[in-house]
């Protein structure tokens, strides 16, 4: 018999490290980490959108005064504001619109005709060419009616703080899940080595260094981590897309107001799958090296 054109079989038996429960746990961990990651990115994107919207808009209240026509005052104020360089548009909200805004608090019965309701002017600013500071106030300063300006600064800050918190929370979740994944894999790698000491011993006896044996396990667990990670990341992608599509409360929960996960989502998921492979490889290597080290002592 000859040995022509034959390829050598893998040194680790095919069953070593082929572990269904471990595969499931790793896939689930990557799934959860993927969702956390998508949630973090979604929160960041949403907060960005909201703060942009908030900071590019100023609300002006025209406060009604006895004996004056508040609606006319509002139209006059709007004209004055429109003339300012850097103002993109103004939108006067009628009394009916103001009432509609107040309805959740005051009920739908309509307000008494003589109750003074402020008129609102939504002023949209040009983000690339914002009006000079104080120019809006100045335009209304010598009018015979009273006006109050709200640049939404408090709101924008609160949204930014909330999105920051969600991002950190998502990051902490991802880190914790990664730690859990590496602990699980280290445990499994030890078990796999313990089940196949015959292989490790045979390799040792024929002169294999620890690193050679550790590399075998590292490769085996890299593939396992990569496969489980791909499955988990795909699941997270589908779940994220589903939540975004369903929209409503579920979508809002994950800050995914739109169907698109964005290019960040497309990057995060393959990274999660790869990271899962590397985490599995590294912790398998460390666990096996450590176990081998304890042998000759």
């Amino acid at each position: 018999m000859s040995d022509q054109g034959l390829k050598s079989a893998p040194l680790l038996p095919p069953d070593a490290g082929r572990d269904t429960p471990l595969f499931a746990v790793a896939a689930i961990l990557v799934f959860l980490a993927g969702l956390a990651g998508l949630g973090g990115v979604g929160a960041w994107r949403a907060a960005d959108d909201w703060t942009n919207q908030l900071t590019n808009e100023v609300t002006v209240q025209i406060l009604p005064t006895e004996g004056r026509d508040a609606d006319a005052d509002a139209r006059d104020g709007a004209e004055a504001l429109r003339a300012i360089a850097g103002v993109r548009g103004v939108d006067v909200r009628s009394r009916a619109q103001s009432e509609a805004l107040l309805e959740p608090w005051l009920g739908s019965g309509g307000l008494p005709e003589d109750l003074p309701v402020p008129r609102l002017i939504a002023v949209e600013l040009d983000p690339t060419n914002r009006p000079l500071a104080g120019s809006l106030e100045a335009a209304l300063a010598d009018k015979p009616y009273r006006a109050a300006l709200d640049d939404h600064g408090n709101w924008a800050e609160a949204v930014a703080r909330a999105s920051q918190a969600v991002r950190y929370f998502a990051l902490v979740l991802v880190v914790l899940l990664s730690l859990a994944a590496s602990a699980v894999v280290a445990f499994a790698a030890r078990a796999s080595l313990a089940a196949r000491w015959d292989v490790a011993d045979a390799l040792h006896i024929v002169g294999a260094p620890d690193t050679f044996i550790a590399t075998l396990f590292q490769q085996r667990f890299f593939l396992l981590g990569l496969k489980a990670g791909t499955l988990g990341a795909l699941g997270a992608g589908l779940a994220g897309a589903g939540l975004a599509y369903a929209g409503g409360t579920a979508g809002a929960l994950f800050f995914l107001p739109t169907l698109s996960l964005g290019w960040m989502g497309l990057i995060i998921l393959p990274i999660a799958a790869l990271a899962s492979g590397f985490i599995a490889a590294l912790s398998a290597r460390l666990a096996v090296s450590d176990a081998l080290h304890k042998r000759w002592s």
């Binding site: 040995d3 034959l6 050598s8 079989a9 040194l11 038996p13 095919p14 015959d198 292989v199 011993d201 045979a202 390799l203 006896i205 024929v206 002169g207 294999a208 050679f212």
Partner: peptide, 20 residues
């Protein structure tokens, strides 16, 4: 004996060379 059962006779015997 301590041969590896998932490797052929050839591969078992060649193991020290492969490891090297």
């Amino acid at each position: 004996f301590r041969l590896l059962n998932h490797l052929t006779v050839f591969e078992n015997i060649a193991l020290p060379l492969r490891v090297a």
